[in-house]
């Protein structure tokens, strides 16, 4: 008889394989009183593009990133096949971009990765999806725990309208029944800082989540997704409805969080894929055919010297 925790390859909420030794304890905090450490988050206040060097005094949480692997994934909606034998390896601590024309199955693939696909009536699936070596469909990981570890940000910002900004951030803790040693106020600040929203909303945390602008709402959704400490964050065209400034903010956030989390992003914007991602996969669906991955690999190679002419045509903007 094995207890559920032995089947779990991770220690919950740390993402560290059990076999691995614990990381060295964080260096002791600086001796001086840093109550007036306002400049710490200076890079989030200004709207110019200046980036300060990383501050050694900010204690960053340890990486809990885990890789996610898809093998021969096929998907159907009823009798309609939308994906055929898609295999992709999304390495930990990296940003993987999924590109391709509309209707080629990128979003479906993304939703398969955190078991949202099965919520659609008539959806079916074949293949293997593994999170850090555990099969999320056949393994012992409950579906709610899978979704908590693999967070998702949707195309349309969807903060909970009945909750305040602060409540929205911690809503995931309540919804998933997750216990945290930190206080709610701490989590709210930390996640909003990570999502680059703290300085804009710090004085109105009790305002309704829907009172923010579209870009701010999307960053609130990112903060909400980060609060449950996911190992992977899936983003489904998170910037498609946003203005350039908000888009840049979110790209900064992605660059920031991928130090600790694996990020998979669907985007229609070639420049964005080039800017934020290290790996890239190009999806394509022929006429009346399911979507397939034409080519995948490091982003630089895919955009400079792709092997397939269709990839070249797409990244150069000749179709799609």
């Amino acid at each position: 008889m094995t207890s559920p925790s032995e089947l779990d390859p991770f220690e919950t909420h740390t993402g560290r394989p059990r076999s691995m030794p614990a990381p060295p304890p964080p260096s002791p905090p600086p001796a001086f009183d840093n109550t007036e450490a306002a400049p710490v988050y200076a890079r989030f206040t200004d709207t110019d593009t200046m980036t300060l060097p990383p501050d050694p005094f900010i204690a960053r949480p340890a990486s809990r990133s885990a890789g996610i692997t898809a093998q021969n994934v096929s998907a159907w909606f009823g009798d309609h096949k939308v994906l055929e034998r898609v295999s992709l390896d999304m390495a930990p601590n990296r940003v993987t971009a999924l590109i391709g024309p509309s209707g080629c199955g990128k979003s479906t693939f993304l939703r398969i990765l955190n078991r949202m696909h099965e919520l659609v009536h008539g959806a079916a699936l074949a293949g293997v999806v593994e999170l850090g070596g555990t099969d999320i469909y056949r393994g012992n990981l409950p579906v709610t725990e899978t979704r908590r570890r693999i967070g998702m940000v949707f195309q349309k910002p969807n903060p909970f309208p009945t909750m305040t900004i602060a409540e929205n951030v911690v809503s995931g803790l309540k919804l998933s029944g997750m216990k945290s040693t930190r206080s709610y106020a701490e989590i709210v600040e930390d996640c909003l800082v990570q999502a680059g929203l703290w300085n804009e909303v710090r004085n109105r945390l009790a305002a309704p989540g829907g009172s923010l602008s579209g870009g701010q709402q999307q960053r609130l959704c990112i903060a909400r997704a980060l609060a449950v400490e996911p190992h992977v964050l899936l983003m489904d065209e998170p910037c498609s409805a946003l203005d350039p400034t908000s888009t840049r903010r979110i790209e900064e956030t992605i660059a920031e969080i991928c130090e600790r989390i694996t990020v998979v992003i669907v985007t229609h914007n070639m420049q964005q894929a080039q800017r934020v991602s290290q790996s890239c996969a190009f999806f394509l669906a022929g006429e009346n055919e399911p979507g397939r991955i034409v080519e995948s690999g490091p982003t630089e190679r895919l955009f400079s010297e792709p092997e397939d002419t269709r990839t070249l045509d797409y990244v150069r903007g000749r179709f799609g």
């Binding site: 919520l119 899978t146 908590r148 349309k156 969807n158 909970f160 809503s171 919804l175 909400r224 997704a225």
Partner: peptide, 24 residues
């Protein structure tokens, strides 16, 4: 979208219904 957001955070169906759908 709100239901999906709740579920994507790792909520059960009932928690999503109680904390998201019914208040909305």
């Amino acid at each position: 979208g709100l239901r999906e957001a709740g579920l994507a955070l790792g909520a059960t169906d009932w928690r999503t219904t109680r904390n998201v759908v019914l208040p909305t």
